[in-house]
Design a binder for these strands. Structure first.
Lengths: 225, 225
DNA sequence: CCAGGGTGGAAGTCACGTTCTCAAAAACGC
DNA sequence: GCGTTTTTGAGAACGTGACTTCCACCCTGG
C-alpha cells in the first residue's frame, strides 16, 4: 500500500511527480554530484549503473559507493532497493511519454502509432540506450510480477498515449471502430512492450530479431479499419 | 496490494482441460512416491507448490520438506533451484506442445491458431490451473531475463507449432504470404505469450483483462491474407 | 546556543541458496 | 551373505545481499 517512499524530504516541497526533468539525458552526464540532493545522487548513480550494465541486480552497496553516500542515508530516502527502481522507472516512463506525446501531436493516427512502435520497440541505439533498455525490460518484468498494480499504474501514461492515438484514428476512420479503443490500445501496448522485452533481452525465439517494419505490418492488420 | 484481480470472469467457457491442468494432473496423479525416482519427487513437489501458490519464490527448504527428501539429495540431482524450475518448465512446454500438435492436426489453419490462442492465453481454469499459469508466467520472465538462450530453446516447440499452422494457412491461402512465416509465427507467439503473462499476473494496464475474442480479432487482422 | 534531524561508518540481523560433514542405508558385485 | 561403493538424511555451516541499529558527528533553525 505504500506506493511512495515516504521519507523523501523533497516530497513535502510539492514538486513530487517530476522527479527530475530529463532524467535520462541529464543524469548520464555527471560531475554535478555536489549540487544534487541526496535523492538525486541515488537516482543518478542507479541510472549510471543501469546504463552501463543493463542489470538491476547491482547491490545496494555498489550503489552507495558510486553515489558516495551511506547505507544509512539510502534507507532514509527510499524504503528499499525496489522503491528506488520504481521511482526511476516511473520517471523514465513519464518523461518519455510526455516527450512522445508532443512528437505525435500533429500527425495522423497511423503515423503516430508507427512512430510509437519505433520508439518503444526500436530504441536500442544511442549512448547507454541498450543498457537502459535492457534494464527497463528487466524491471518491467520484475514489477509486473511483484506488484502488478504498480506496474499498471506506472505504465498508464504510455497506455493513455496509445489510447489517444487509437481514438484519433477512429475519428479519422483509419482505425477500426468495432473494437473498444481501450482494449485495442491495451493489446497494442502489450504487443509492443512484449516484443520490446524479447528484443532487449535477446530472447527472440527464432534466433534473429524481428525488424520493426514487420512488426508494424502485423499490427497494422489488427488496427486498420 | 493483493495482486489477485484474477477471478477471471470469462473463464467459464472452456471446460476442456487446459494444458496446465493436464500437466498438473499428470504430475500429481497418484500416491506413488515410493516408486518414483528422486528427481521425480522433486519435480512433483515443485509442481504441487506451483499449482497451490503460483509463486516460484518458495524456498528450497520448503521443497525438500514437501518431497520428504533432503537438501543433500536435492543438490545431488539438480545443480540448483533454477535448474529444477527449468526442467519443470521445459517438460510442461514440450508435453503440451505435443498435445496441442495433435489437437490441431485435422483443422484448418485459422481455427488451429484460434485454438492455440485459447490454450496459451486462455482461462486458468481447473484445479491449480491459475497457480500454474501464474507460476509459468513468472518463470517465463525469470528465464527470459537470466538465460535468454535457454528461454528461446525451451519455447521452440511452441514456436514450431505455430509456425506449422502459419505455413498451413499460407497453403490454404487464408494467411497472408507477404510476411516471412517464421517472422509471423514469432510475432504471434510473442503477442500471445505477452498477453498471457499480463493476464496471469493480473497486470492488465487498463485494469480489466482482455477477453480472448478481442485478442483474436486483433491477431486475425495481422494474420489473414 | 542548543535541540533535532540528516549523515557517514561500521557492526549486526535475517533470509535463503548452496556446500560440507558424517554416519546410516541402499545398491551392487561376487 | 558380505565387503565395497554410492546415495541418502539430518543438520550445521558458509556466502551474499537486503535491511537495521547504534553512535558520534555535523548542520541548521528557532
Amino acid at each position: 500500500m505504500t506506493n511512495q517512499p515516504e521519507a523523501v524530504p523533497d516530497a513535502q516541497s510539492g514538486e513530487v511527480p517530476t522527479w527530475r526533468d530529463r532524467a535520462v539525458e541529464r543524469s548520464l552526464r555527471g560531475a554535478r554530484a555536489k549540487a544534487m540532493s541526496r535523492s538525486d545522487r541515488f537516482i543518478d548513480a542507479a541510472m549510471e549503473i543501469l546504463s552501463e550494465t543493463g542489470r538491476t541486480d547491482f547491490t545496494v552497496q555498489e550503489l552507495i559507493e558510486r553515489s558516495k553516500t551511506s547505507l544509512r542515508s539510502f534507507y532514509q530516502h527510499f524504503s528499499g532497493k525496489e522503491e528506488l527502481l520504481l521511482a526511476l522507472f516511473e520517471e523514465i516512463i513519464t518523461t518519455t511519454s510526455e516527450e512522445w506525446s508532443e512528437e505525435v501531436e500533429q500527425v495522423d493516427a497511423l503515423t503516430s502509432l508507427r512512430l510509437l512502435l519505433d520508439r518503444i520497440y526500436g530504441q536500442a541505439a544511442g549512448p547507454g540506450g541498450a543498457g537502459i533498455n535492457r534494464a527497463l525490460s528487466v524491471f518491467h518484468l520484475h514489477l509486473a510480477e511483484s506488484r502488478p498494480a504498480d506496474y499498471a499504474r506506472v505504465l498508464a501514461p504510455l497506455r493513455v498515449l496509445i489510447h489517444e492515438q487509437v481514438e484519433k484514428g477512429i475519428a479519422e476512420k483509419t482505425i477500426r471502430a468495432d473494437l473498444d479503443p481501450d482494449i485495442l490500445a491495451t493489446i497494442m501496448l502489450q504487443t509492443l512492450v512484449g516484443a520490446a522485452h524479447m528484443h532487449a533481452l535477446g530472447a527472440q525465439p527464432n534466433g534473429k530479431p524481428i525488424d520493426s517494419d514487420r512488426l508494424w505490418d502485423f499490427c497494422l492488420g489488427g488496427l486498420k479499419a
